[in-house]
Design a protein around this nucleic acid. Sequence first.
DNA 1: TACTGTTTACTGACAA
DNA 2: TTGTCAGTAAACAGTA
Length: 467
Amino acid sequence: MLSLSCIDLWPKGSVGLEEKVASPATKDLIESSSFNNSSSDNLDDSLTSLQWLQEFSILSDSGRQQVISTSQHQSKLFEQQLGVEAPASPLAGDLASIGMPLTPGKPIATAVPALCTLPSLVAHGHCPDEVDYKTNPHVKPPYSYATLICMAMQASKKSKITLSCIYKWITDNFCYFRHADPTWQNSIRHNLSLNKCFIKVPRQKDEPGKGGFWKIDPEYAERLLTGAYKKRRMPPVQINPAFKNQLRMISQPVTTVPTDVTGFLHVDPESQQLLEEFEEVTGLDQNWDPHLAETTLSDCWSAVKGRKRKQPYGHRAGSAKVLCRSSSPLLVMEEPKVLGSLKGNFDWDALLNSALNGDLSLNECGPLSPIPQDQNLMVHGIHVNSLEASVNTTESNMLIETQKDCDVDLDKETFLATEFLQSPWTEEEEAVNHPDFLSMSTVNINQLFDLGGSLSDDIDSKIESLL
DNA sequence: TACTGTTTACTGACAA
DNA sequence: TTGTCAGTAAACAGTA
């Protein structure tokens, strides 16, 4: 319903999101909704923090029920923002591998202001709905290296993982790194060493191979999984400079969206208004839940911080990197699409379906595969339309009832979510498994759509009216 | 020799 | 303005 693509949402000119003014109705909605306080910021950080760990934790029963009534309609909105994607065959669609010239150089930081107006992503200059990180070699994924490492670890389903496996997972799932200067590997190692979230597990003497294993510190993992992360923006999207010209040449002919001479796409007023209201509904970066912030991911970093800034060199080799802001619309170019590839257009309905059926082990491409839009969802044995479910009063009431149990289930959920850390894995398993990130993960949509207990039917109806 | 791991030092973005 | 964080670069040592 509100499937707003990047292209659809391309703003007029370079108007910043901050300048948007919500309609009175949407402002009321914002003020009255706890949804605004927590989930939106959670989402906002989904690409920039380790919050994804929460999102991939295991759903508790109460969480599942909460999902039923609250997330159906929001999922359509949030799926646009999520940077969690289902990898497909790594090399499929790799432009660089099918003839496009590649010059693996150091990426130039390139912002794409107001690329699309989905708030968090725009603010960060990303639009994962249109940027297929698995096949697009031009755009650097908007994940921090720590996040990438965690993703690799999570995807492995093992408690520990080798450095080479981390490399492999990243290159398999993010085309950018397959062609980028290998210095990113240095950054990975740097992160592993410096970040206390990661623990080195020495290789046993009888274990062949080079180097040790790495795992997530359960202490920090638990914090992460119990709602801790800190808001932080990511640097602008980075594009391999050598691709820029090709991107421009490629993207312009294929786009069907009108652009002006500056390269910005035109947006019809309806889309613009819809988007603005959506932003207001979702909270957009505006609030930070202090309760969540109490135990933040920053705890992980605080122990390793403390270096004082030193005087600059004056001249530093390699520091000639040019940082430039780009207004290029290139990032919304059409790329060869691969089913289940790393894109933001995530099928949350299908995922919900899986969750509600008690199985979030997303193997066999089941819930991650596209489903027909008219396909009904099974919610506890009841067929429901994905959108109809969102406004089903009965379901909403069920949510409120079951939320009472959320706290009780929290510990169990945390335990389940961290349980994977306890099981070892071997190099043999590593060789056998070539895990897809999402296919090997579980998604805690309860966290994703953490609306709190104060979400009322009234809010539901307001949201519905906006949709 | 290449890889792995640690450490230092810096830059830039961002938030307080 | 200052501190924090993420990213980058590089030097260096240990190891297979």
